[in-house]
Design a protein around this nucleic acid. Structure first.
Length: 539
DNA sequence: ATAGGGTTAG
């Protein structure tokens, strides 16, 4: 019997060979022996081997019990292998173990990981009772499928039935708040975390660092981070990523160096966060050095995501040919995103010929993506090639490619106010437009000229100007100015990238009002203050 | 011996 424990110990220490050897040499293997192998392998992430052992166990006529079943569902979840998962589910039902809490919860988790949310929830509802774990499974499952609002509903349901949140609940709920950039909610949960006495738990701190960063409060991320004295790779990567997200590349580099001096081993994620921070802060040389460090010194294999960071870094620094050569020569397969990154760089660098060429590649990867069309339209409009602009639009119409609508939102007293471009539905619409028109007049005196190339649809210049004024981010900012007390920074979120014209306008708005304006883009934060932006026009 | 959670390009 102690052999089973020995097997578990070997696997835990990464000594798979000894574990296997022992397993093969044992005179008798009972269910617990098999369980130890299956559980041990999935615990160290070797899900395929784990599943293999489970299947071999069945072939030998062993009847897996609830312990082994829990593990095998975890490994199907890891592999996102719903086919095997369903087969084991059928077995579980046959032997009546589907009402076991642990089996049921891991089964539900497996379905959710395989994107079968409804099936997972059905399993949970069939259980004899709902526990914290069941709620946590649903909350995390919903967040991972982009339904953080639904996840938060489950969180309040959970409190409604009198169940107390535990560490896992907190981490999941804080992650929901990051997704929704719901600062007020996040702060409330942080307060509950402190009250429950789990504010020193590392995953909790990690999720808080991430949440504050995504909500635009880098200072709070740093405060939470500095409350922890040890060294943890997840936490450090989260903090580096937070710095990068806010254009604080130097800080990110400092953190990374401290970490290396402390002897910690960075992994792929750490490097991704670091490279991202470098590219978004214009730290070209550093970024390239870190890329080399990653591959040469640490022997890590860069993924297409790492290459995308480097392409971004080179592109933003004006080395477009080098960036293209890298995509063509890298050992991993290029995707549409990496070409799109190069395309954006062509636009920023005003290399219009190259942009036309690269756009074709992007369209090949995803013909329904409107981004390359919109970008080309802006570029052609900049050179006043109106005929080419309308041809492009015709092309889009024929392929029924639709431009994703811009949406911006502001949180006010815990309520979210949302604005679409050209939106006229807000109750304070009249005031908002009036405010914007006055503001536009003021910033014109500081040199603002509307950038008509940012208008996507064909219309008269005067109309174009109005249409620019009604961009969702401008509407949201105007509403915030009208609603927030003097001196409070304005925080706006947007689903797409901030438009070029809005970026110029917001800089000047921060100058003439003396107000700090923070805009969260689809990829980063822009802190506008005194006519400047933290992205240094480098986004 | 068994269940749920943290960082990740555009």
């Amino acid at each position: 019997m102690s052999w089973n424990i020995l097997i578990g110990g070997y696997i835990k220490n990464g000594d798979l060979e000894s574990a296997r050897k022992l397993f093969d040499e044992m005179p008798t293997r009972n269910v617990a022996t098999w369980n130890a192998m299956v559980a041990g392998l999935t615990n160290v992430g070797l899900d395929e081997d784990s599943l293999g052992f489970f299947l071999a166990m069945r072939r030998e006529g062993m009847h897996p019990d609830e312990f082994g079943l829990g593990s095998v569902f975890r490994c199907c979840a890891g592999l996102a292998d719903v086919v095997s998962g369903r087969q084991v589910h059928a077995y579980v039902v046959r032997c009546g173990m589907d009402t076991d809490m642990c089996v049921g919860n891991s089964l539900a988790h497996m379905y959710m990981r395989c994107r079968r949310l409804a099936e997972g929830e059905a399993v949970l509802h069939a259980l004899p009772s709902l526990t914290v774990v069941s709620f946590n499974t649903t909350i995390a499952g919903r967040t991972q499928h982009g339904d953080s609002e639904g996840a938060l509903e489950y969180f309040s349901m959970m409190r409604g039935v009198g169940l107390a949140a535990d560490v896992v609940t907190f981490v999941s709920v804080i992650t929901c708040c990051s997704d929704l950039a719901a600062l007020a909610q996040g702060q409330q949960v942080h307060a509950q975390v402190i009250k429950s006495g789990v504010d020193k738990v590392v995953p909790v701190i990690t999720s808080l660092v991430h949440m504050y960063s995504r909500c635009g409060c880098l200072g709070d991320s740093e405060r939470v981070y500095s409350g922890y004295c040890g060294s943890d790779l997840f936490l450090l990567s989260a903090m580096i990523s937070a710095c990068g997200f806010h254009g604080q590349g130097r800080k990110a580099v400092e953190l990374f160096k401290q970490m290396m001096n402390g002897g910690a081993e960075p992994n792929e994620v750490t490097f991704l966060a670091l490279l991202y921070a470098c590219s978004h802060s214009g730290l070209k040389e550093e970024g390239l050095e870190f890329f080399e460090l990653m591959t040469k010194t640490y022997g890590l294999q860069p993924s297409v995501k790492h290459y995308t960071c480097i392409v971004d870094l080179l592109g933003r620094s004006g080395c477009l040919d080098e960036a293209e050569a890298l995509i063509l020569s890298m050992p991993v397969r290029a995707d549409g995103i990496i070409w799109k990154t190069l395309l954006s760089a062509c636009k920023t660098q005003k290399n219009f010929d190259m942009a036309e060429r690269i756009a074709e590649r992007v369209i090949e990867f995803d013909p329904q993506d409107s981004a390359p069309y919109v970008l080309l339209s802006n570029i052609r409009a900049t050179s006043k090639r109106w005929g080419d602009v309308s041809e492009l639009r015709k092309n889009m119409r024929e392929k029924s490619v639709r431009k994703e609508p811009g949406v911006s939102w502001v949180e006010l007293k815990g309520q979210v106010h949302q604005f679409c471009t050209g939106d006229k539905s807000h109750p304070r619409q009249g005031e908002i437009i009036e405010y914007l028109e006055e503001m536009m007049a003021k910033i014109r005196q500081c040199g603002y000229a509307p950038d008509m190339s940012m208008v996507f649809h064909d219309m008269e210049d005067e109309e174009k100007e109005v249409s620019l004024t009604h961009h969702s981010e401008k509407l949201a900012i105007a509403f915030a100015f009208l609603s927030l007390p003097e001196g409070v920074p304005i925080r706006v979120m947007k689903n797409l990238r901030v438009c070029d014209d809005c970026h110029v306008a917001i800089k000047l708005m921060s100058q003439v009002t003396g107000r700090e304006i923070v805009v969260r883009d689809v990829s980063r934060f822009h802190h506008f203050r005194d006519g400047k932006c933290s992205c240094r026009d480098y986004w």
